[in-house]
């Protein structure tokens, strides 16, 4: 019997053999804001003869698993299942909150703009409170935190369980090696582009996608594990 994670949708691009880049999108609403740009990065990698895959984890995107059944631990396990089922040398490329679940044992890691779980959680809680206020309900942060400790709550479009919220509050990108971590920005070792994960207007950034593909390809080439 195959692991449930493997029944979810997987987008593939590029060569079907050789090293493969496994993308881990940002979490929750931020995933929707980055998906198109990551697809462009996968296309750009394919043009550089590098294969890539983008799996849905249970509770994400097209998955039929309700989000309140997901936890960071279940996503980490699902990623490990994908790694175990894939016979190719793998580079995991994670973005933002993807770095909170990406520590499966693979040849190399690459992270872009990693973020703490507490920051993601705080923005989602603030979004919920703002939505409540627009609907004429005044909810304080303390009230929402107390409620979320005992029951699943809807935060910025996703229903999160108390277990998920407890994990998010503590989650930090795990130290792993070898790993290259790059921020968004204009300096050396930074990728230029728009912080799409912050922006509500749907968009894509072809320049950023090309920069992602270039940086990953260079890192793969320089890394002895491939």
């Amino acid at each position: 019997m195959s692991a449930p994670a493997l029944a979810e949708q997987i987008v593939r691009d590029g060569p079907a053999t050789g090293p493969v880049v496994l993308f881990v999108l940002p979490l929750f609403e931020e995933a929707n804001r980055l998906r198109r740009t990551v697809r462009l990065a996968m296309r750009a990698l394919a043009e550089r003869e590098v294969g890539s895959i983008l799996p849905d984890l249970p509770g994400q995107n097209e998955s039929l698993v309700p989000t309140h059944e997901a936890t960071l631990s279940s996503w980490r396990t699902a990623l490990a299942d994908h790694v175990a089922a894939n016979g190719r040398p793998i580079l995991i490329a994670s973005i933002r909150g993807g770095a909170l679940i990406d520590d499966a044992a693979v040849a190399a890691h690459w992270r872009f703009a990693p973020v703490r779980g507490a920051s993601l959680l705080k923005t989602m809680m603030r979004t919920r409170i703002a939505g409540d206020r627009e609907a004429g309900r005044d909810t304080s942060m303390a009230e929402l935190e107390a409620k979320a400790a005992n029951e699943a709550v809807r935060l910025a479009g996703n229903i999160l369980s108390p277990a998920m919220i407890a994990e998010l509050r503590e989650a930090e990108p795990v130290a792993i090696a070898p790993c290259r971590s790059v921020p968004l920005g204009t300096g050396e070792d930074a990728l230029p582009g728009r912080p799409l994960w912050l922006q509500a207007e749907p968009g894509e950034d072809a320049g950023l996608a090309a920069a992602i593909a270039d940086d990953i390809t260079t890192w793969m080439t320089s890394c002895a594990n491939f």
């Binding site: 973020v115 920051s119 923005t123 409170i129 703002a130 627009e134 912050l198």
Partner: peptide
Amino acid sequence: DSMAVAGLLTELED
């Protein structure tokens, strides 16, 4: 809008 304020506050904090 009020939704954008949520992200704005967290970015200022970080």
